[in-house]
Write a protein that binds this DNA or RNA. Structure first.
Lengths: 331, 331
DNA sequence: CTGAAAGCGCTAACAC
DNA sequence: GTGTTAGCGCTTTCAG
């Protein structure tokens, strides 16, 4: 900037003003400075500017990972959510700092904000660390979490209506004639827990009681899912439908069932959760609960930005819809 | 920092040194300062530090998008690559600034670096903007691009051996007895172009000549893929195999063929490219060319960091392997 | 309309 | 060992 000032024969203050488009500066001078900057391929140093202005237009997005499995991030739903967040942030003139942290050290997630790198934090995935999240929120850190709304939470969540989703999927399966519907998913996780709630509610609504043997606390790990299907089949437990806590899980269930000689939907009906793009191109096309991904990014971004602006945390539950396709309907 | 200095009864310089773990400062003082910082939940402001040190441990990762379609980022392969990059960057102590830019305004991609927000740039996807990329590289911007190595390029690429991949897939299909193998993919895109090359080479190797009608320049858009399959079938052109430029495309091809009453692999053999995690759980399990995703992130990161350190751009081609599954083998 | 000067939060000579 | 000082690149009072 000093260079430009010298070349333009003005002070740095004027250059700063000119580049900021201030009307205080003579139009001619402004144009000259702008031209010079362009030809020198010069851009204002954002870091210095932010430092001076004590502002920050960056939001830290962190994806917690389960240290035990150190799985590379692979669920298409979360991956898409990240893409979505990038767009939403860009649309609102902010930048996105992306990182992954050990889910057991969630306090590290706040680092970006504490080190002044970012003005707020978006957490993609809640895991079972409700209390750690509360601790962050109590510190006054602008924070929005994708996940389930839980009682007694001090932080803001944005998530889909998991209970409703679980209910929709389960009662659909029931209506299709399924009477022994298995639930696949680790209900210790808040979101899955609520989907499980919905499952229970739907069964209760028709006066059915869920068999304990049909509820399998399966983690989001391929090998575990396959093993669960194998065990279920081997055990001889009768079941005529599966409601899986995610599409990815449902797909693995279907492919494992097929390997074991059971056809979907002829022998077993299956429904998933998420409605990832591939769901409708799967074979059979997968019935599933759609989470409104398109709203997710903007909602999370709006929430952190509101908090950065001083607002109190406020959670939001997005409605879910069920999309019946072939996997849950007998031909 | 000033606060801590006051509370500790020392100067800010000492606090700075203490927090940096300098041995120049008395161990007792150092501990006192560290304790104070901890209790105050204080962290050094990275932006200020970087400004002063004229250093920068951030890398900008940008994903170009096609403005015409403004598709939300959805290909699992690219999404996974981003996750991978995040990990690789974290492992090497850097942060990741993620953004998407209009593929027609690739010069904007450099903004992060020019504005001092980042020290280097990783571009995920090359599109057809070879020259724009060269222009960036010529400016001396540390840059690594995921894509195809092209003649006369001034920038560094990291990518899989697309020609080899195309050859492997095509000759496998040939060996399985396919004689009229269709190619699906827009070969204007460098990577797809090379896969197409491989396809041609494989056919040439067995003295077959590809029918123009069997080569379809289909973009990565679901509706276009479906339309292409429909047209191909409707036209009455005979074909007994499809090599698609990505797994996602292959899956859409399979699901569309099925809708039109053609079974895979009974009527048509299909092979894809990428080996996304879902490929093996698809029905039928998808034969595909694996790109070594695990190496991609680290390789791209190593390359930008090397350039930031002053090295000259140096491209890298990662080997591909073909994984034959049911979609390309007659029972 | 423009310039001089102060300061954002930090670190690195250079003294003591 | 520790403090003083200068300055990273910028914006913004406050004078003129």
């Amino acid at each position: 900037m000093a260079d430009i000032a010298r070349l333009a024969g003005v002070s740095v203050a004027t250059v700063s003003r000119a580049l900021a488009g201030s009307t205080l500066v003579n139009a001619a001078t402004r144009e000259r400075v702008a031209e010079l900057a362009r030809s020198l391929n010069y851009t204002v140093n954002v870091a210095a500017k932010n430092l001076r202005l004590r502002q920050n237009r960056t939001v830290s997005v962190v994806v917690p990972f389960d240290a035990d499995l150190r799985q590379p991030l692979s669920d298409p739903f979360f991956l898409s959510l990240i893409g979505n967040l990038a767009d939403a942030l860009t649309d609102r003139g902010h930048e996105m700092l992306l990182s992954r942290v050990d889910a057991n050290r969630l306090d590290l997630a706040a680092q970006g904000v504490e080190a002044g790198r970012a003005a707020g934090l978006i957490l993609v995935g809640q895991w079972r660390h409700h209390d750690q999240l509360n601790a962050l929120a109590v510190r006054g850190l602008p924070l929005a979490v994708w996940g389930a709304a839980l009682p007694g939470q001090a932080y803001a969540t944005v998530g889909s209506d998991n209970v409703q989703g679980g209910r929709l999927a389960t009662s659909h399966l029931w209506q299709q004639g399924a009477r022994r519907i298995a639930f696949f998913g680790d209900w210790q996780l808040p979101e899955v827990g609520q989907r499980h709630q919905g499952y229970l509610q739907a069964l209760e609504a028709v006066n059915a009681r869920p068999a304990a043997k049909l509820m399998l606390p399966v983690p989001f790990v391929n090998s575990a899912i396959e093993a669960a299907v194998e065990n279920l089949v081997a055990s001889g437990t009768r079941f005529d439908a599966v409601f899986a806590a995610s599409d990815l899980m449902a797909m693995t269930v279907i492919s494992t069932l097929r390997r074991l000689g059971r056809q979907v939907p002829q022998d077993v009906l299956v429904a998933g959760y998420d409605d990832i793009p591939l769901a409708e191109h799967f074979h059979p096309p997968l019935s599933t609960v759609r989470q409104p991904l398109g709203e997710a990014g903007p909602a999370l971004v709006a929430e952190v930005l509101a908090q950065i602006g001083g607002a109190r945390p406020s959670s939001r539950v997005l409605p879910t819809t069920f999309h019946a396709r072939e996997s849950s309907q007998r031909a």
